[in-house]
Amino acid sequence: MPLNKPHLTLNNSTQFIEGWYWVLPSKELKIGMVKAVTLLGKNLAIYRGFSGQVVAIDAYCPHMGAHLAEGKVDGDGIRCFFHNWKYDAEGICVDIPSLEKPLPVCIKTWHTAEQYGIIWVWVGAQKPHSLPFVPELEQVDCDYILGTRFIKNCHPNVLLINAIDAHHFNTVHNLPLQIVFDSKELNSNAINFSNTTRGGDNSWLIRLIRPLYQKEVTYSMCYWYGSTGTVTLGPDFLHFYIVFALRMIEGGKTEGQTILITPKRHGCLGWGVNRGLLWLTQQVGNYFAKGDTQVFQTIQFDLKTPTKADRSILEFIQHVNRQKALTWQTWENVENLENSETNYPPTSLLP
């Protein structure tokens, strides 16, 4: 019996994929600072201990329910404002001022990491998998700046699909090319799409820049946990790298943060070159984002009539629906539903 579409993870406002999610820029959390954060429906307190360690902890003190973000950082632990109970970086209660010995009480903490100037939280019960990264820059020392922070009136999955929607590059961005994407799963939580292009012989612009693109692959997109995308584009001698870190917010909408990246170049000249390249990268990202903004305010995504040009989108849908899902707010496991992706046509049925 076919499964109902609400069970699917893709474009579902009630569940999401277990994985790493961006929380806030590292520079916004100084040593000794604590902030209240709502991530995927769950309230957290996130703080930076005196050693520099970032800790994410469930928000409410189990004593009387006070929000821990109203408290203060003490060493690498945190004290509740209401009665001064202290919890260490593992969430274990280590001090209750009114008692000689603390009660056996603990609060759930979540794995954190910092990369590309962003604090990330691992949302899930099992051991964390890889942080999102640009595949071409996996072992490369990089410079980066944070770009635009935005909210879109659609689900993060729908926003990411746009980058592998081959035909929209012709209709929205007026590129006179036929674009075909090839996919490769890096692991169960990451899938990479790279393109080959054909045509464009009637465009003077394409004829002018084609010598700069001797390699077939000129654009690639890697998706992590269905929520973070890394883009690589540009001519053979100069690639631009953009990370779109996304998270679902109330109502199935998207809050996102762009990160602009370039390989580190040393010395004063290298520093100046990189500042210019990062600025240029932001302009490239803004150009492609501008044309799609109107669509994201009104779209009601439901792919019922796929065409051959939508093959990469169907592959992404199936990749998302195969991953482990958690429920909004509770972060509890969603029962794995066998072959749930069959609510969308398999790629083998495309013309």
Rank of each mutant, 00 (worst) to 15 (best):
P306E: 01
S13G: 00
A36V: 04
F133D: 01
I151A: 05
P156R: 06
D88W: 06
I145Y: 01
G65I: 12
W271S: 13
S203Q: 00
F288N: 08
L146Q: 07
L337Y: 13
I179G: 08
D302S: 13
K264D: 05
F169I: 05
T305G: 01
L68T: 03
P345S: 08
R149Q: 12
A59S: 12
Q300G: 08
R198C: 08
R265M: 15
D58I: 04
E216Q: 13
T307L: 15
H266I: 14
T228Y: 09
A125F: 02
H129V: 08
F316N: 10
F150L: 08
K101N: 10
A36S: 14
P6R: 01
H83E: 08
T307V: 12
A325C: 08
Q329L: 03
I96G: 05
P156N: 07
E138D: 10
I151G: 00
N4G: 06
Y116Q: 04
T293A: 15
D236A: 14
G285W: 10
F181R: 05
K108V: 01
I118L: 13
I107G: 01
T171R: 06
L159H: 12
K264F: 09
K184V: 12
E18S: 14
S130F: 07
V172H: 03
F237K: 14
K35Q: 13
M1Q: 10
K290I: 07
L40S: 06
C93H: 06
F237V: 14
T9N: 10
K290R: 15
V73R: 01
K304D: 11
F296C: 10
P351N: 15
T307R: 11
N153G: 07
E90L: 10
L337N: 14
K152L: 13
R265Y: 10
H63L: 07
A289T: 08
A190Q: 13
L314K: 10
S348T: 09
A289M: 12
W279T: 08
Y116D: 08
Q115F: 04
I313Q: 14
Y287V: 07
V320S: 06
H173D: 06
E341P: 04
L137T: 00
P104F: 05
R275L: 09
P176D: 00
D201N: 11
N12D: 06
C154N: 11
K72E: 01
M33W: 03
P25Y: 09
K27I: 09
W204M: 00
R275C: 02
F296V: 11
N339M: 05
W85H: 07
T347I: 14
N321G: 04
T258W: 06
G199P: 10
I145E: 10
Q282C: 05
G147T: 05
P97V: 04
P102H: 02
L29Q: 00
P346I: 03
W120T: 04
